[in-house]
Computed example of a mutant assay.
Amino acid sequence: MKQNASYSLNDLVLYFARLGTLGFGGPPALVSAMHRDLVMERQWISEDDYREGMALAQLAPGPLAAQLAIYLGYVHYGIWGATLVGVAFILPSFVLVVALGWAYLQFGGLPWMQAIFYGIGAAVIGIIAIGSYKLTTKTVGKDQLGWALFAVSAIATAVTESELLWLVLLSGAIYWLVKTPPQLIRPGVGNSIAFLLPPLQNFPTDSVLWKLAIFFAKAGTFVFGSGLAIVPFLYGGVVKEYGWLNEQQFLDAVAVAMITPGPVVITVAFIGYLVAGFPGACVAALATFLPCYLLTVLPAPYFKRWGKHPGVKAFVDGITIAAVGAIAGAVVVLARRQLVDIPAILIALATVGLLYRFKKLPELSIIGGAAMIGLLMRYIP
């Protein structure tokens, strides 16, 4: 699997460890950062490989950013690369979230965190907007059909506030039919994932840890879309069905996920910690990400084998365009929730302006400045 690799596995693992430590903004920002860093700047990953990874991440259930990272690790270094990249990407945010879970229980509530989230959340909207703009111009280019599919996906995501799997598949099918009218349709390729779903209902359910494992494995196996798509599923189980957390605790858990770097889905570790301490955090995180890992590396050889076929490539391109449209729509959804007043809007606009004007400006410096603004606005009259 190492042919044509212009980088070492250690280089890639270090990159994803850094992204997992410093990458704010959830799936839209993280997948944009991977494209910018690995495809455009370093040129470690080809555009085709990136698109195949995006398509697989959209087709399979589980967190989008983590699946894309795992696939990119697989491209040149196989299962070993996928495994190390996945761990490197997830572990930093896991450690941070567990530490915050401990502080939450020790000191009660997160008023200071909510203040930080106010500033960071507004800046993140600007970061995501710039990342989405760059990813869109690179992916869609001057393709009129691509722009039409992009617009439909973006509008649908903004209106429904969710990523629609059927629309992603339809986009791939339309692009395929228009760009490369099929001569032969191979049955079974699109269904290669379904048989991999584990029979979760067979596990015993006589302890809290087992209940956590079963519930979060279902979340990782059956929830499609970005990390944000898992939030309604978690709410229904954690608050309504099991009563593990109350409403405020759950909202705080989501806030923790949004203000910490790495994948948004890492909120499961915070929830697991509140329910059953450190073992609960480990079980929740492992149960959520293991299906995501398996549903990426098992179909990956088929994507690598068939991804260069013109018909498959057109289908993948259509899915990728819809995925980028969904990211653009997610910017609108997040902005409606986060930019609730004039100061927040100004922080977001200032972030967009700074990143557009200064291409090399570190995003971490903007995040730090926005956090300080949030704290000052809360504690200084």
Rank of each mutant, 00 (worst) to 15 (best):
S6F: 08
Y7W: 06
D11K: 01
V13L: 02
V13H: 01
L14Y: 14
A17T: 05
R18I: 04
L19E: 12
T21R: 02
L22M: 07
L22R: 00
G25T: 10
V31E: 06
H35Q: 13
H35W: 10
H35K: 07
R36V: 03
L38V: 08
V39F: 07
M40P: 00
R42H: 11
R42V: 05
Q43D: 09
Q43Y: 08
E52Y: 01
G53Q: 05
A55M: 10
A55I: 05
A57C: 09
A57S: 15
P61E: 07
G62W: 07
Q67F: 01
L68K: 00
L68V: 15
A69T: 00
I70T: 09
L72Q: 04
Y74E: 00
L84K: 14
F89A: 04
P92H: 07
S93K: 04
S93P: 14
V97Q: 11
V97A: 09
A99D: 06
W102S: 14
F107A: 03
L110H: 09
W112L: 13
W112R: 12
Q114P: 02
A115N: 08
I116G: 09
Y118A: 15
G119Y: 08
I120Y: 07
A122S: 15
I127M: 15
I128V: 15
K134R: 14
L135C: 14
K142M: 04
A148I: 08
A148H: 00
A154K: 04
A158I: 11
L164Q: 13
L164S: 10
W166M: 08
W166F: 14
S171N: 04
G172M: 02
A173Q: 07
I174M: 07
Y175A: 04
Y175M: 05
P182C: 10
Q183H: 13
P187Y: 00
G188I: 13
G190H: 06
S192T: 11
L196Y: 10
D206S: 04
S207E: 03
W210L: 15
I214V: 15
F215E: 12
F215Q: 12
K218S: 13
A219N: 07
A219I: 05
A219M: 07
V223Q: 10
F224N: 11
F224K: 12
F233K: 02
Y235I: 02
V239D: 03
V239I: 09
W244D: 07
L251F: 05
A255Y: 09
V256D: 04
A257H: 05
T260Q: 13
P261W: 06
V265W: 10
V268K: 02
G272S: 10
G272P: 09
G272L: 11
A276G: 14
P279L: 08
A281M: 10
C282E: 03
A284G: 08
A285D: 02
A285P: 05
T288I: 13
T288N: 14
T296H: 14
T296E: 12
L298N: 08
A300K: 03
W306P: 01
K308P: 01
K313Q: 13
D317V: 08
I319H: 01
A323F: 13
A326T: 13
V332T: 13
V340R: 06
P343R: 12
I347A: 05
A350S: 07
T351F: 05
G353V: 06
L354W: 10
L355Q: 06
P362R: 01
E363K: 11
S365R: 14
I366E: 06
I367R: 12
A371F: 12
M372R: 00
R378K: 15
P381K: 13
